[in-house]
Design a protein around this nucleic acid. Structure first.
Lengths: 220, 220
DNA sequence: AAATAAAATTAGACAAATCTAAAAATATGT
DNA sequence: ACATATTTTTAGATTTGTCTAATTTTATTT
């Protein structure tokens, strides 16, 4: 019944992102690593979240989100991504700078604010990194997105998002003029290091596995 | 050195609003009332703020802001008012709904965000209630001429001008026998609607925020 | 100026969220 | 399957911010 705290929201979000959308249970250590805290703190918090019926928790067995917990997580992610759109589209932030600010803005509590923001932005479907924005009703569009590293030779896809959204990776993409919406054509795979020779726009370029494993494409 | 917490920011803002802009010391009870907490909590916090050199505190003698504390307070007020402008101008909030949301948004930490927001809004000078927005450099429109709406309880000023000079406003002043040169004594502030109980000449009267935000006084 | 009232402070407790160090449960390797 | 390593949990301490109840200081009244 009582409100969900700032900190609890961060845990719910982390659990969701670690794959707890379904029923798979998420490990204590994984959560600790993800939000840069200690495993013992995670255990404490899991007990509190279980008490509030936001997670299913069994000692030593990991946690998963309850329906209510998933709803809460989606609401936070919705806010996070809407704010990211705002920062990039309206304030001209560059897409690699928005994350930490959105991380704060996502905790603002006002349903009216979120609704009006959504409207102000024209009800966007994707954030600046290409990740889908959950709906007001909690629906979460899952798309057939695949990592570039999984594409076979001579296949094509449209760049729709990143897996690693660290500043360094985003800067790499900027520097190499790879943007969301670009069509990428895989020409050759190099077996030795799993790198790819691809065609983007009209340029041929070599892409390391490291990069390819962090770029989501929609297969054509 | 360490960052100013959420809660500390609220205290600094309260002290500023209670008239601590200059050197007048602000009472513990007044602060407690203003942020809806207990006097003992205020005392605790004052010690912490004094430790950080954000306030001058002497037991039983009240507190005032140091230069650094004033700077911090102005920065929060700047953020609060810029967000209020955003909410009203861009998201179509009505002016009486923005306060509690801005109360949350003012704590977001990102200098770049504030600067870009300011620019996005066209560098507004006043918030939707007519209160001036402190500058990036910390300058705050002179104390000489201030809106009645900014006067703390139990302060006095001489009426020296109007902000809104529309016929309807001027007629209101006429009807209520409020003239330039009159001394106005603020007796009470009503938190709920920001209206004021004041003494003008020998009459007590209730003045709405709408009116108070359009009357300039010279503080005494 | 002594008595009383009001304001401010202290002492001690509590809840949230975290940590370290030690113990318990589970997983892994040979 | 037994020993070892890893993961997870517990126990106890810490920090921040708050509270209540008791005490001390300052202000007011007669």
């Amino acid at each position: 019944m009582s409100a969900i705290s700032h900190s609890e929201e961060n845990y719910l979000k982390a659990i969701f992102h670690l794959g707890g959308e379904g029923k798979q249970s998420v490990a204590t250590n994984a959560i600790a690593r993800s939000i840069k805290t200690k495993p013992s703190s995670v255990t404490d918090m899991m007990k509190r979240l279980a008490e509030k019926d936001l997670v299913n928790y069994r000692k030593y067995k990991g946690v998963s989100l309850t329906e209510e917990g998933k709803k809460a997580a989606l609401s936070i992610i919705r806010k996070h991504r809407l704010w990211e759109v705002f920062l990039v589209e309206k304030l001209n932030f560059s897409w690699d700078e928005v994350h930490e600010v959105a991380e704060q803005l996502e905790h603002i509590q006002s349903e009216k604010l979120v609704d009006l923001l959504d409207e102000h932005l024209g009800f966007p479907q994707y954030d600046p990194h290409g990740d889908p924005i959950p709906g007001k009703d909690g629906n979460y569009p899952s798309r057939e997105k695949q990592l570039l590293s999984q594409f076979p030779e001579d296949s094509r896809g449209i760049c729709i998002g990143v897996k690693d959204s660290s500043a360094s990776f985003l800067k790499y993409l900027d520097r190499n003029k790879i943007s969301l919406g670009d069509t990428i054509h895989v020409l050759e795979r190099e077996d030795f290091d799993n790198s790819l020779l691809v065609n983007i726009g009209n340029r041929k370029m070599q892409i390391s596995h490291q990069i390819a494993a962090n770029l989501y494409l929609k297969m054509l």
